[in-house]
Design a protein around this nucleic acid. Sequence first.
DNA 1: CGTCTATTTGAATGTACTCAAAAGCGGTGG
DNA 2: CCACCGCTTTTGAGTACATTCAAATAGACG
Lengths: 200, 200
Amino acid sequence: MGKTRHMSYEPILQNVARHIALDDAETDLFTSLLQPERRAKKELILHEGQVCKNIHYVHSGTLRAYYVDREGKESTIMFAIADWWITDMYCFINRLPAMLFIEAVEDSVIVRLNKEDLDRLYAEVPKFERFFRIIMQNAYIREQLRVIQNLSQPAKQRYEHFLEKYPQIAGKVTQKLIASYLGITPEFLSNIRGRKGKIS
Amino acid sequence: MGKTRHMSYEPILQNVARHIALDDAETDLFTSLLQPERRAKKELILHEGQVCKNIHYVHSGTLRAYYVDREGKESTIMFAIADWWITDMYCFINRLPAMLFIEAVEDSVIVRLNKEDLDRLYAEVPKFERFFRIIMQNAYIREQLRVIQNLSQPAKQRYEHFLEKYPQIAGKVTQKLIASYLGITPEFLSNIRGRKGKIS
DNA sequence: CGTCTATTTGAATGTACTCAAAAGCGGTGG
DNA sequence: CCACCGCTTTTGAGTACATTCAAATAGACG
């Protein structure tokens, strides 16, 4: 899939407006740097090893970022649904080959912003430093809460916490993917779910 | 322990200077908002339940942030050595009662900056948005790499990775604390270390 | 020197994984 | 519209990784 013609920048502008106020010229500059794209289910947005040049805003659909270790085991690092930002941040910032894959879990429309353009944006509209400061801050907090969960809770509680915290994601992805996000096998997740309401 | 008179702001200014350039007036404003403090080994910098008003720069020494679950089990969320920033970010940003404890692992000198002053700094010297954008970005990346480790590696590899990545921390904290950072029991960490060079 | 805590060691247990096979479900082509 | 194919989910047996509890040993600090 490729370019999209019929989509609105309203959602991404709303997303930005939640943290900073742009005038018309700034809005025009910002939108001129954006590249909307359609991605079909299972299509890769980023492949491990390929230099990660873009950060993506999810306009609609669902993406996931995952890591594949030497034995081929996949670990889902994050999901991103509508109105989220996603990239392989480490490699994006340092202009390095990606360590993650990012794929569309369902048909999605994303908005691409590349590193050069983002740096230009920081230079020309310093308010965006604030915007991404807040985005990074929230991302950091999310990951820290996840680390707390992972360290302090057993698998069953982590699963229930995930369902509570991300019901929309839970509704759109398979159990296999949830298992790989929780750091357990699909078999074991099934086991956990099985003994949900059972005695003992 | 309390106020410190004989310490230099050089390290923290160097830390800031790595990302943004301040003129004399900006430097004066910034340093006027800082509160240096000494903390003895085992002293708490933040207690769970207490509103988290400050972010801390570590001038010297070592701190750790940890979570205590209902059963009383401690999980170390992060260590901070000289030149690192630390706080309970979720509660700091949202002005909420802390979910974490932060304590001095050894005698330390820290520099406190409170939320009101930080907000004032953002307003008066917008460059600090950039500075903390980078700090948050690095913190996010660190946590994400940690999540990848936790999901994809067994305990032994996580331990070896920790020793490689943070040799200075490893040298200053007990095995018990490293175990609680890795999410395993001290007994099991001892076990892992025991069979280091052994046959099978 | 004595006390307190960290570390080690070991046995018994539990949590989660592997492997294998069956059952369920969704999409696709005839 | 049905039948088939591929993938996900379930189930179960056997195993491995990690925990708990207990006790002995070693280190750190006043």
